Amino acid sequence: MLTPQVKCYELLTLTVLTIVKTTKMESLGNHPIIVIGLIEEKAELPCYITSIQKDDIPTLVFWYKDNITKPIYTLDARRRSLVRARHSSVFMTSRVRFVTDTKPALLMFSSLNSDDQGSYRCRADFIHARTRYTDSILKVIEPPKKPVIRDQNGKILRSLIGPYNEGDSLLVICEVEGGVPSPNVSWWRESVLLDDTFKIIKAGTVTNELLIPSLQRHDLMAAYSCRVSIYNLTSSFSSTVTVDMNFRPLAVRIEKEQAILKAGKTTKLECQAIGSRPAAVVTWWKDGRSLRNVKSSNSVDGNVTTSILTFKPSILDNNKTLICKAQNPLIRNVVLKDEINLNIH
């Protein structure tokens, strides 16, 4: 019965998962080891040269690639020890060497190129035991360029974007050039996947569009990241934008404790606007005219604006309406107001 075993080879910053099925035979069967490496970086292909018989040693090791009948690399230990064995490489340069003092032994590439991709077979002959084979598939990744984020007009967006008004739609387009094989492009908000439906718009260019139909308050300073991955391995290639926003006021109210006023006596009325970003502009109105004797202050976080009106009513103001208006100057046509009827004694 086959026993699944999971083995992991660490290649630079890439973790490569390989599944090997162990049997009683010397061959590893029809399940090649998948090794993934970055172009111009290092990679290692395993070769099992340990005999299942005690005190047996390998005498010859051959490496074959694809359908090439002649070995691309040979180790000859028939007349000498394994440490002093003769190495020869027919088709490869000095950037490839075979190391036997590791378990398993490794065919090591110092710098991968695209021609290295393919199927490999390591054949190990022993003094007594049957020949043992190790099959590998080497996939060479050519990383893409860093993702570029654009708006609907094609303008490149970086870092902090906006500010957008509450309720606005947001369209961001991630564009990735290059990469072999063609990369996957996805949008994330922190650790949450939002969209992984990308498309190829031209040879070598992949895009993914993210549409937020209506920005809400919880989208303030939200970080949206475009990530690139190949073979389900997430690389370090990503770009992120953070959304800045403007908020309309949520509420405005006049403190009505002093609603009963005395004619000819100066008094102060207070009005508060809450929820605006940036701080709201608060104005006072009577008979359609703006009142000027006003002082305003904002809370530390800018969320609350307090306006104090110094007012000296006359008997003619009795039963007139006093209005306090609050507006974010960056958001047009959104004005909140509160009003009181003046009761002058």
Rank of each mutant, 00 (worst) to 15 (best):
T3L: 13
P4G: 12
V16A: 14
S27R: 01
P32F: 05
V35K: 12
V35N: 15
I36K: 13
I39K: 03
K42P: 05
S51H: 03
K54Q: 12
D56I: 02
I57E: 15
T59W: 08
L60C: 05
L60F: 07
V61T: 08
K65C: 12
K70V: 10
Y73R: 05
T74E: 12
R79A: 15
R79W: 14
S81R: 01
L82I: 15
S88P: 00
S89I: 09
T93P: 13
S94Q: 11
V96Y: 02
V96L: 01
D101A: 04
T102D: 00
T102M: 00
T102Q: 05
P104Q: 10
A105W: 04
A105E: 01
F109W: 05
D115G: 08
R130C: 14
R130M: 13
Y133A: 01
D135K: 12
L138G: 02
K139V: 10
V140W: 04
P147W: 06
V148L: 15
K155I: 09
S159L: 12
P163E: 06
Y164M: 14
Y164D: 08
Y164N: 06
L171W: 05
G178Y: 04
V180W: 13
P181H: 06
S182H: 08
S186C: 10
W187V: 12
R189D: 13
E190R: 10
A203T: 05
V206M: 11
I212K: 14
P213G: 08
L215I: 02
D219F: 10
D219K: 04
D219A: 10
M221W: 10
M221K: 14
S225N: 08
R227C: 07
I230G: 01
I230D: 01
Y231C: 00
Y231M: 02
S235A: 12
S236W: 11
S238F: 14
T240Q: 14
V241P: 01
T242Q: 11
T242W: 03
L250P: 01
L250Y: 05
V252N: 00
R253D: 03
E255G: 11
K256V: 15
Q258M: 02
T267N: 00
S276W: 04
A279N: 03
V281K: 05
W284G: 11
G288L: 12
S290H: 06
R292P: 13
V294N: 01
K295M: 11
S297V: 09
S297T: 14
N298K: 10
S307L: 04
F311S: 08
F311L: 12
F311C: 06
P313E: 04
L316D: 08
L316R: 04
D317I: 00
N319K: 06
N319R: 07
T321A: 03
T321S: 05
K325R: 15
K325F: 12
K325M: 13
A326R: 00
Q327K: 13
P329H: 00
R332W: 06
R332F: 06
V334P: 04
E339G: 04
N341H: 08
N341T: 11
L342G: 06
L342P: 07
N343F: 07
